[in-house]
């Protein structure tokens, strides 16, 4: 075959090879990973009731002064049911506090959920109107923010935290932050 003809005949192959290159790189990225302007920022101000104690008003002052995890959950969220047993397990096995944000939910449903599935949270913020969720740029539940001792959001995870996400993504960051905190 003449080189020119061979080149023409190979065009489909070349285009395909380029596409494979693109696909290969996009597999490395998780499309559900959302860019968030909030990383490096403080947790937005809020003044909301506690799910378990509606009389109690929670504000930023009530957030732990150590590394903690802020988990967005709701009883209408199917994936939260899948995530919940993991949270119970991680809360029990690892020395880190979980704060819940009960997003756009009814408090009696939320209470029943915690009563039935167990409560991994130090407390849950009742974000009935979804204002805190909006400030946090919540995309869907469940979502989890890693917050450091200074109340600065350091990482965000969209979707369920299972064993794999925990060990590959969340725990390494938490442990790193905790050791930084210890050093200070």
């Amino acid at each position: 075959m003449k080189p020119k003809k061979l080149l023409i005949a190979s065009i489909p192959l070349i285009i395909f090879a380029l596409l494979v290159l693109v696909f290969n790189s996009s597999l490395k990225k998780d499309p559900r990973e959302l860019e968030t302007k909030l990383i490096g920022q403080a947790v937005p101000d809020f003044k909301l009731a506690s799910v378990t104690d509606l009389e109690r008003v929670l504000t930023n002052e009530d957030l732990p002064k150590e590394v903690f995890l802020l988990n967005i959950w709701a009883t209408w969220c199917v994936s939260c049911y899948a995530e919940h047993p993991y949270l119970i397990k991680f809360a029990k096995e690892y020395p880190i506090k979980w704060i819940g944000v009960n997003y756009k939910d009814e408090s009696k449903n939320a209470l029943a959920y915690l009563a039935k599935g167990g409560n991994p949270y130090l407390y849950s913020i009742a974000d009935v109107q979804g204002t805190l969720g909006i400030d946090l740029g919540v995309y869907g539940a469940p979502e989890t923010f890693i917050v450091d001792a200074n109340g600065i959001i350091r990482e965000r995870h969209v979707g369920v935290i299972d064993d794999r996400v925990w060990h590959n993504k969340i725990l390494p960051i938490v442990e790193k932050l905790q050791s930084e905190q210890g050093a200070n």
Partner: peptide, 14 residues
């Protein structure tokens, strides 16, 4: 699959 098919295509094009 596709790469193989397209290579065969280029090979036999003539």
């Amino acid at each position: 699959a596709v790469g193989g098919a397209l290579t065969l295509y280029a090979w036999q094009f003539d």
